[in-house]
């Protein structure tokens, strides 16, 4: 276990380093820069050049990268070219909302998906299994924005039960107004429950047929113990890996849902920064989101290895 954890952590560190380079490279490939975008069309080339120098965009890429990387290592993501404030502030503002949304979604999704997966896996091919499968697959087939618009049209506009947008809401007000969360969480959860419960179900079906489960039953292990101690640890593995992927999506922000409900989350902030060629903000947000994704997959791998310790780090 310890050997695996160390190897996996080392792999994570390498991934993070590569990721840092990649984020920087990709953002510097964006056409135009902040000096171009910020000036209106009648600015003279001299004015643009002056602004470029002022924003220190004229220096070689390698120099800019080392500057930026040093900042990242000391916890300084740089200064926004647009607002002039630290990127960390922008991050804190948008990440708070995204984290609340993600956490609430997970609290709803995980127990429900695990329960549905286990129940339908236990009754593979039965009526309950087929209904759960049909409903979750149908929900998964409806695009997010269609589902979001349908819900808004029905529940907000027709019936007026729930607020339709988050315009003017900050992270601080959020917990005071839980009604705001219902629609966005519902839309995101609809898809994620499907993905997750399918994986849990598949794990259950495979493991229930495994020879070691048959043997445990033949040695007289009662059903409850069999499920909890012999089946679940193995069956959970694909579900946990799927959960890591689902978690990535949530933290990266679910752009369409944010757009439909006007939620000022990470995805919205990222799109805005790209539009303004606010490179330090793009880099900072992308790095944090990607690092979170790495962290999720690291955690998932470590948990799975703890459950079924025969996996290798790299094949």
């Amino acid at each position: 276990m310890r050997g695996y954890a160390l190897q996996r952590l080392a792999l994570g560190a390498v991934q993070l380093a590569l990721l840092t380079v990649l984020v920087f490279l990709l953002t510097s490939l964006l056409p135009g820069d902040a000096a171009d975008v910020r000036n209106n069309e009648d600015a003279t080339p001299e004015q643009v050049a002056a602004l470029r120098e002022q924003l220190r965009l004229d220096r070689p890429a390698l120099e800019r990268f080392t500057d930026w990387a040093q900042g990242v290592l000391t916890g300084d993501l740089g200064t926004s070219l647009v607002s002039g404030g630290p990127v960390l502030d922008i991050l804190a503002e948008s990440a708070g909302i995204t984290l609340v949304l993600a956490a609430v979604t997970l609290v709803v999704v995980v127990p429900l998906a695990v329960l549905l997966g286990i129940v339908s896996g236990l009754r593979e091919g039965g009526r309950l299994d087929r209904s759960v499968t049909s409903v979750t697959l149908a929900l998964n087939a409806v695009p997010d924005f269609v589902l979001a618009l349908l819900l808004v049209a029905g529940l907000s506009l027709q019936l007026g039960w729930l607020p339709a947008t988050w315009v003017g809401v900050g992270a601080a007000d959020l917990l005071g107004q839980p009604a705001l969360l219902v629609l966005p969480v519902g839309v995101v959860a609809a898809r994620m429950i499907c993905l997750l419960s399918r994986q849990v179900r598949a794990g259950m079906v495979t493991v229930l047929k495994a020879e070691y489960v048959t043997q445990a039953r033949r040695l007289g292990v009662p059903r409850r113990t069999l499920l909890l101690r012999h089946v679940l640890p193995n069956a959970a593995v694909p579900g946990i890996q799927e959960l890591a992927r689902v978690g990535d999506n949530l933290v990266g922000g679910v752009l369409i849902v944010e757009a439909v409900f006007a939620i000022p989350g990470v995805a919205t902030a990222l799109v805005r920064a790209v539009e303004a060629r606010d490179v330090p903000t793009v880099q900072g947000l992308a790095l944090v989101v990607a690092a979170a994704a790495l962290l999720f997959s690291l955690a998932a791998d470590l948990v799975c290895h703890r459950l079924v310790p025969r996996t290798e780090v790299l094949r």
Binding site: E211, Y212, Q215, A216, R217, R218, L219, G220, R229, N234
Partner: peptide, 20 residues
């Protein structure tokens, strides 16, 4: 099962739970 009659399967390798 187990207490009175215990069965040892043909391929015992796959009869062991990898998670336990």
């Amino acid at each position: 099962r187990g207490r009175l009659v215990a069965y040892m399967p043909q391929h015992p390798g796959s009869a062991l739970n990898p998670a336990r």
